[in-house]
Design a protein around this nucleic acid. Sequence first.
DNA 1: CGTTTAGTTGAGCATGCTCAACGGTCGTGG
DNA 2: CCACGACCGTTGAGCATGCTCAACTAAACG
Lengths: 260, 260
Amino acid sequence: MSIKQSSIDRIRHVSFFNKCDDSVFKTAVSGAFLQTFPEGTTLLIDGEPVDFLYFVLEGSVELSAGWKSKDTTLAILRPVSTFILAAVVMESDALMSATTLERSEVLMIPGESLRRAMRENAQFSFAVSEELAACYRGLVRAIKNHKLRDSTERLANYLVTQTARQDNAAQITLPHEKRVLAALLGMTPENLSRAFAKLNKQGVSVSGNIVKFDKMDALKRLARPAPTIDNHYKQSEQLDGKASTERQRGGHGTETDAIY
Amino acid sequence: MSIKQSSIDRIRHVSFFNKCDDSVFKTAVSGAFLQTFPEGTTLLIDGEPVDFLYFVLEGSVELSAGWKSKDTTLAILRPVSTFILAAVVMESDALMSATTLERSEVLMIPGESLRRAMRENAQFSFAVSEELAACYRGLVRAIKNHKLRDSTERLANYLVTQTARQDNAAQITLPHEKRVLAALLGMTPENLSRAFAKLNKQGVSVSGNIVKFDKMDALKRLARPAPTIDNHYKQSEQLDGKASTERQRGGHGTETDAIY
DNA sequence: CGTTTAGTTGAGCATGCTCAACGGTCGTGG
DNA sequence: CCACGACCGTTGAGCATGCTCAACTAAACG
């Protein structure tokens, strides 16, 4: 086997693999290999054929797309996430580019292995359908977030989501540089600054990548998080192990960090 | 059987059903029924549980979502299209509302029937995965269309896509009221008017729902349609029957009319 | 004929972007 | 140890895109 057992273990319990038989799993990952890339490596280009399903095991990967000299960030993936599943299932070209934001460990499994496992096993195929459905719904949420909220509201909701993920503390650490966060939220770095400034009234104070919350209720009143847009609702279920497959999922793969 | 054979026939050759066995198909559609709704009927509400997979057989259906008194149109479906597949696969709540735009014939099949067919047959399950992957990719295209293009560019590309669908003629008929088209393209009716006016320079002239093209090359130069955003490229393949599953597909189901 | 509705046009405004200047931090090299 | 440069982040000014509101036209329908 060309990949470390530890890597296998890490994806074994992720999303669509976690309930399949060992034999199906073995088929699906046959020919997989692990690779480490430096920061700024382009793994995938918009419009090019896709031969592998990717898993981010360490580091982070940005998914983006461009047109006519404009560029937009679609998502940022952190461990453990998959990406480009849809293109692999359809055997077609990528619709977005993927670039490492830092030194990253990536597991690549041949598309044909995955498809073979799907064709051979209905349970597994169903699980992949569920994963794709969850990704689809993540995208729908992202579109709604983007079209129905202005930049300040998106930031406010991002912060509320992050507090939910970070133990509901009165203080969180931003997981990205602010420029990256701005891209994620669909705004310029300048406007992110201004959005943070506006949230002062709601008791939000920033220094470096630490954000403190003085008036969480006021922030939530502005953010007005909604179950049909945001995905941090069943947080309490995380503890008892009954979390739905959909929980905390982005639009592109498991454990995706907030979209836009 | 509670539904007319003609309705069955119409979905038998659509997307994920067209290559499955009769027995699988029979399982999938067991308990299905056909219903006709007047204009303005709400079929599905944002946040409510979903029990059926829907097919639009006649008329048209708008998918929309709202938050804090804002509303946005996500897609408009025309025959023959499916919708809400992702929620059915995951047995979860709808993320968008569905409303008839006119008197419409809708076929509803119980979610459990579909899921049972998927669990029993890997081929079928794979086909559903392909459908979901295609829907996902339609949404990615929609997001890119929306974030990378301004309103005039979106209209220009919409028009180019429509000409491709309408025989590449120098004149097309708009399939919707302009207010509906505006919602579809993510702008106000006022701005749609202005966008049409701007396209005068590119030889576009409108009267009623007839749009004529004087300088198709100029329009295309402005629109700059791209294979990774627009989906009218493999048009030629339609004729020889080798059209990819993905062709002319929107983000929410088969035969969806342009998203955004 | 009025009445209604779709569409257009104009004026003013809001959100968000660009460009430019400036401050603060960190790492490097003198 | 300090000086310098590179880079991130912030702030301000001006501009562009798109929205709202209102008036007006034209076609459809009673």
